[in-house]
Every structure is written in C-alpha cells, then in structure tokens.
Design a protein around this nucleic acid. Sequence first.
DNA 1: ATCAGTTGGTTAAGCGCTTAACCCAACTAA
DNA 2: TTAGTTGGGTTAAGCGCTTAACCAACTGAT
Lengths: 338, 338
Amino acid sequence: MPTMKEIAKRANVSVAAVSVVLNNKKSRISKAKKAEIKQIAKDLNYHPNIAAVTLSKNISLTIGLIVPDITNPFFATLTRLIEQQLGAQGYSTLFVDSNNSFAAESDAVQNMVSRGVDGIILVPSNEFFLSKKKERKALIEKGDKPIVLLNAYTDLKVSYVNFDNVQGAYLATQELINYGHTHIAFIRGKANFVNAAERLAGYRQALKDNRIAFNNDLVFEGDYTLDSGAKLAPKILEDPATTAILSANDLMLFGVIKWAKQNFVDIFSRVSMVGFDNDPYGEIIEVPLTTVDQQPLEMVNETIDLLLEMLTTGEKVVQHLIVKPKLIKRSSIHKIEN
Amino acid sequence: MPTMKEIAKRANVSVAAVSVVLNNKKSRISKAKKAEIKQIAKDLNYHPNIAAVTLSKNISLTIGLIVPDITNPFFATLTRLIEQQLGAQGYSTLFVDSNNSFAAESDAVQNMVSRGVDGIILVPSNEFFLSKKKERKALIEKGDKPIVLLNAYTDLKVSYVNFDNVQGAYLATQELINYGHTHIAFIRGKANFVNAAERLAGYRQALKDNRIAFNNDLVFEGDYTLDSGAKLAPKILEDPATTAILSANDLMLFGVIKWAKQNFVDIFSRVSMVGFDNDPYGEIIEVPLTTVDQQPLEMVNETIDLLLEMLTTGEKVVQHLIVKPKLIKRSSIHKIEN
DNA sequence: ATCAGTTGGTTAAGCGCTTAACCCAACTAA
DNA sequence: TTAGTTGGGTTAAGCGCTTAACCAACTGAT
C-alpha cells in the first residue's frame, strides 16, 4: 500500500504538503505542485490508511450498528437503509447482531468505542429493557459517543427514534372494530418490551373509545418469534367467541398460521387478523395480511439526520422523534354481523 | 478514554511495560507489578485504542463482509452466522450491502482495504459476474488481503465456498420426476449468474438421466427477485402441459404464487413446485414448499475456517469448497399419472 | 575479585497521518 | 532603503501502541 511518504518522495515535497493537498485544505502549495501530487496519488492508487487518520484526528468515519436479529425482515430493512445512507455520507458501518442479548449489546458498544466509532445506532434487543436501568445507563454512557436508539422508547437521557406504537395499535384495532369485531385477541410482546406496552395501550384505548370492555383473557404474551405465535395459536383459538387477532408483529401471526396449517384449521375463515411490521411475506400468503407499517424509511431518515447532526456539530442532543404509523389494508379482515 | 500512558503513570512504569503485561507477553515484569498494572487497567476501565493497535501491528481484528442484499433471508442468515462466528473469534465485522452493484462492491473492497481489514468475505452480487474478468480480478487483488468468495463459483485465482448447485438442481428435478412430472418448467437466474448456470446444468442432467427431452421453451429467465417471478408467472402457466416448476430460488416462486393469488388461479393445484434456499417463509405458506437447502451453516463454517487459516498462517491459500445440498421435502409436489 | 547470568525493567524508534508553528526568498509599497 | 506582505513550502510534535535493543543492579560460581 502506498503511503504519503512515498508520494512525498516522488514529488520532492514533505509529507505535510501531501497531506494538505490530498485533503484539499487551503495552503500555500502552488497549483502546479498540487496537480503533481494529486496525479502521483492517482498513479499509485493511493488511499489513506484510515487507522492512521483515526489516530491523529480522533474521528473514524465509522459508525456502529447493533440489531437484535438480522434475519428478522424488519431489522434487515432498517439495516439496509442505514448502511446505504451512511455509505452515501462517507461513513462505514461496523455491524453487530446482538442475538437479542443485552450482554452482547454491551460488549458490542464497548468494542465499538474501543474502535473509535464516531457514533452508534442501537436497535435495542428485548433483553435491553429487561436489564436494570443502571446497566442500561452504563451501556449508553460508555465512552460517551453520540448514540441514538432506534425502534424503542426509553427512559434514559438519550435520543431515540421510534414509531407511534400506540397510534399504530389504535388504528389496527379500530379497523377491526369497524368490521364489526368485538372479541379481539391481542398477541402482545413480553411484559417488559417497551414497544409492547405501547401497543397494548393503543389496543385498550381503541376498545375504550368504542365502549368495548377490555378482557385480559384475550391478551396473550409472545416474544416476537414465529414459534411463540405457533405456541399460542391453540390457546387463542380455543375461545369460539374470538373472531379476530391483533398481533404485535406479523411474525407471530405467521406462527399462528403455521400452527393452523399443521392442524388443518382454516385460519383465514376462522379469524380476521392484523399484524405489525408490514413483513413482505404478508403480501404473498394465501390471504394477504392487513398490517401496520412501521415506516422504516422515515425512521431511518430521522435517525441518520439526528446522528449526523450530532457528528457535525459535535454536540450531543437529546431528541425524541416519533414517526406516524400507516395501516396497510389488505384482505385478512372480514365483516362480522353482530 | 484512559490510555496506557495514564496507566503507566499511576503504576510508575513505562508504557512499554504496560503494553507487554496487558498483552500477556512474556517479559521480565515482576508478578507484583503485573498484578498492579492489570488492576489499574481494570479500575480505569481501560480498553485499547484499536486504531493505534492497527497502525502499529498492521492487523485490525476486523473483517469486511459484503452481501448483495441483506433483506434476502438467505443472505441475512449467512450474515448472522458470519458475524457471530467472527465475533466469537474476536473479530469485528465491517458490513456493506452492495445493493447488487459491482461498483458498490468494488468501492467497498477498496474502502475496507483502506481501513486495514484483515480479510474480506465477499458474497458476490449478480453484477459481479456480468463484469469484465479483468475488473473482477482487479477487485479481488486490491490490497491483496485474504479474501474468500461465498456462494459463488469463480474462474479467478481465489478461494471460494459454494454449495453444490448442480447436485441441488439434480436432486430437485429428480424428485419431480419421481412424482411423474415430465413437463417441468425451470426458472433460472440470468444467463451470466454463475450459480444459475450450474442449476440449469443439474436440471438438464436429471432430465437426461431420465430420458426426458430438454425443451428450451420451458426455461424462463428471472433475476432472483420476487417481482421477476411474478412477471414470469403468466408465461410459465400459459402452456397447459406444464405440470411442475423448479425455481432457482424460493423468492421467485413466491412471486409466481403472488401473481396467482392476484389472478385467482389455484397455483398449488395447477402445478407442483420446488424452490431453492429453504426460505423460512416456504414453511408457512398455504402449501409448504419443497426446497433445496443451501446449508448456510456448513457454508459459513467452511468460510470462516478458510479465512481464519489464512489469517493465522498469513498464507493465502486458494481452496474451493463445495457443500452438499439437502432437499427439504414438504408438500408442494403432487403425483402425476402419465 | 571477576564475570556470566538473571531480574526488572527502560529507551527509542516507528506505524501513517495531521496540524500548528516556523522559515526564507522574492516582491511590494512608502 | 526598509518594513511588511505574500508565496511556497518545511519542521516537528503528537495521536496510542508495539517491539527490539539496551541497561543497571544483583546473585552465585569460580
């Protein structure tokens, strides 16, 4: 790999001169020399050693990205958008799949700080919210880099971008009610997942606004995995009065559908369904799924803007951005006569 | 962030002493001093500045990973396995989604080399194989880092890990034939995708071994996207003699299914289907999809082993590893009477 | 008494790049 | 004539860490 030293030698100048011209800083280097240096750099196919730049400037043009599970399509979509937008701004992405483990998230943040990332985007795992506040706080403050949480609310003094889970669940529930449903099962995320609580709240609010009594027996707790949905399916369907299911994500609904297939129940006739996430596969299943879209592009845009603002101004702002949900109406809801 | 200098001052030793003990090198530092230094490091929550380590040792414990599209579940699975296995070995992952662009792959490699990654895992895009050999070669040789291609054959002098596409397509085709199918449509990948050619070859070989004439009118060209499958669907289904479809990936088959839903054709009765990839959603659709599993875990294991061998020995080996396919038999094939 | 070997470290150079401070010759302007 | 400016760079220190070479004091054997 060619270095500035090499270029300097060929151009008969000091490496300082090379540095300033290759970085396009205003300096007293003559036009001719500038051109010569740039030409030599091009000829040698020079590219800076980023470790050296990082060491001396204390910025790395790298950001860390931590997601709970990249095989979850929603997180994959976020990841793709983030990587591409950061790349367009000249930033590289140090990627970690935390496998839904708080310990892994913590290690990842430490390692990223150690590597001198300029900032961190953390899509918190479920475990994140199960940890002690003190530990969460320690994680956030490690190396006090700019950090923004994505897809989560939090009580910590840190920026986050989330989407309006209350409103999302409200919209979805209202839609079911509009079709005449009153016995609506709700598959929530585990008690301590923050987004899960908000979604439950939206569900309850919609019931209340429609004067439908909330019934806790209709609330089932999953963990956002397909398997947890499959496991809950028989319990949910046990009550013949239940005519609809609202799920805190599509994946659990797919689990319900899978269980139904395996047990020969015609699930699409049996219940109406609405999910969360706008999973691409919701569109191609037997009956396309009505779902709440989390507007990943908007979320990522806000996240990148926020992070970039911190990086360029050098100030650590604490902002909370909430993007509005959008109900994608497809065919998994049918009318009920009361 | 505390530095070795800080530790050295507190322990009344030189930073060189700190360096050797924190790196557990054998040295002439007394047990007592060693313990003291380590304790201070722990108290200060010291973590090395990786940029400095990289600069001086010329290794970064970072590897670059480039995939064509992280929202494709197969690539997501590979990515997850890679990141976790590398993490377990102390390596971090610099991630790039090339968005199926050769230019992006090329830039990514350059950038990674510039950042001093120790090695690169490239899951080549489709465009990769459409580029000139000279350009592909240039990409591979950039900065001559250890590099292994994953999920591809190649004519270049570089290691790769792939799975046996010929055998995979052969198995799938033979399965269809076993069920009595003789008019089997094949959705291939674009002509220049190397894996696509091998899959076609396996399909043809199976036909030949069963004395079924190859008919080029039954071969359709997609680009591995869901949309391309949807676009091809009407053409494929036009010929009433066609009783089965083998697709070079599940996604295109999902596209066919989607088109069928939208056009009210009962696709699962109309044709038998086999895909490639063992996409998780193949299991939860109306009729679970028979598919060829690419054994991502085995592929990743081989890839990591290969790369780690190069990293530890420092030698650039050129090995070609082919993992055996596995046919996942589900319900999307039905018997045909001839 | 001398010397080799051991113990317990230190020194210094270097990795590639950045940046503030400096230098000198030639040219203006009063 | 001289002070001041401008053009065209150079020097040197420093970012945090690594590593080979060195050194001083002590111990034990001859």
